[in-house]
């Protein structure tokens, strides 16, 4: 996820990076890029790592467990989406999915960096050196990509869930959770738009594309309920104001996804039969995962485990 070099880089803060990069476009040089590039100014995982090292950001045990859940959701999804790179139906979509994967990876790095502060572990320790039962992601995120329609169906569910979650976490009493959520919210908003556009097109496209998106929703709907399950940890965090009870997101999730599905001409009951789809047992938050996660982790972790401490 990051090498020591990039982490140290953060000590200098944002300003120094932008000076170096923005010069090319702004110089008026005829051979310069037509568009000006800058790294921008936003909360980065490195900034959180810096605060952690300085001791200005330290999560409580509950908040660390919570950040681990959010970070694992994003990390596993990023790994899944990254598999589309060079494999998407069109070059443009390839990059779109890659961008979304990188957004999710960014959220994962921030959440895991923060969570790790509680146990004196780095984001890399948490990502590469935990075993399957130690991951706290929900089952939906580890589900295989399937065809493009399955991936879009997963994106649709995930992005509408994450948007409602991060929107509420803006008010978290934990300043770091609130800050990460603020950065993630805008990105997830675009993920909602991206998946909704594709749901509309696949549902309203050809007979084949419609069949596939319906199949995608039917395959993934069993994993929706788990996203909205409360437990003791979320109850304590909601009480403290640092987190939210997942069940409180359900109403808005149902309403907003329902609007898009209606526009796509997909009736939840008649076309998708969502009311008759049994829900999986879940258990991801307790480290009980489907058979898919082990293979995913093996691929994600093999390099770091084969060559501990390697940098590139």
């Amino acid at each position: 996820m990051t090498s020591e070099h990039t982490t140290d880089f953060a000590i200098e803060g944002h300003g120094d990076i932008s000076v170096g990069v923005s010069g090319a476009g702004a110089s008026g040089d005829g051979s310069a890029s037509a568009t000006r590039i800058t790294p921008g100014n936003a909360l980065r995982p490195e900034d959180i790592a810096l605060e952690v090292r300085r001791g200005t950001a330290k999560p409580s045990g509950d908040v660390a467990e919570y950040a681990l859940r959010l970070g694992d959701d994003a990390l596993i999804l990023a790994q899944r989406l990254g598999h589309w790179i060079s494999r998407a139906p069109e070059l443009e979509e390839d990059i779109a999915l890659g961008n979304i994967a990188l957004d999710q990876l960014g959220h994962a790095r921030s959440f895991l960096t923060y969570a790790g502060a509680h146990w004196d572990k780095s984001e890399d320790d948490l990502a590469y050196f935990r075993r399957e039962p130690e991951f706290r992601s929900a089952h939906l995120f580890e589900q295989p990509n399937g065809d493009f329609a399955v991936t879009i169906a997963r994106q649709f569910i995930v992005s509408y869930y994450q948007f409602e979650l991060y929107k509420r976490l803006l008010d978290s009493t934990d300043a770091t959770i609130a800050a990460i959520s603020a950065k993630a919210l805008k990105e997830v908003d675009y993920h909602r738009d991206h998946s909704a556009q594709w749901v509309l097109r696949l549902a309203g496209g050809t007979e084949e594309s419609r069949r596939r998106i319906i199949r995608g929703f039917k395959l993934l709907w069993p994993y929706v309920e788990e996203l909205f399950e409360d437990d003791e940890l979320t109850a304590r965090l909601a009480e403290a104001g640092a987190g939210v009870q997942p069940s409180t997101l359900r109403e808005d999730f149902d309403r907003l996804t329902g609007e898009v599905l209606a526009e796509a001409g997909l009736d939840a009951v008649n076309d998708l039969g969502l009311d008759r789809i049994p829900q999986s047992l879940g258990g991801g938050r307790r480290g009980k995962h489907s058979e898919h996660l082990g293979y995913l982790l093996a691929e994600m972790q093999v390099l770091a485990r084969e060559h501990p401490g390697a940098s590139w």
Binding site: P89, E90, E93, D147, F148, R201, L202, G205, T206, E208
Partner: peptide, 24 residues
């Protein structure tokens, strides 16, 4: 155009890896 565009190429190539029949 909101809907109704041909996405057959999308779904086909997502599994077979063949080039789109009707390029965008």
């Amino acid at each position: 155009v909101e809907t109704g565009v041909s996405t057959s190429s999308t779904t086909d190539s997502s599994t077979t890896g063949t080039p789109a029949e009707t390029p965008w």
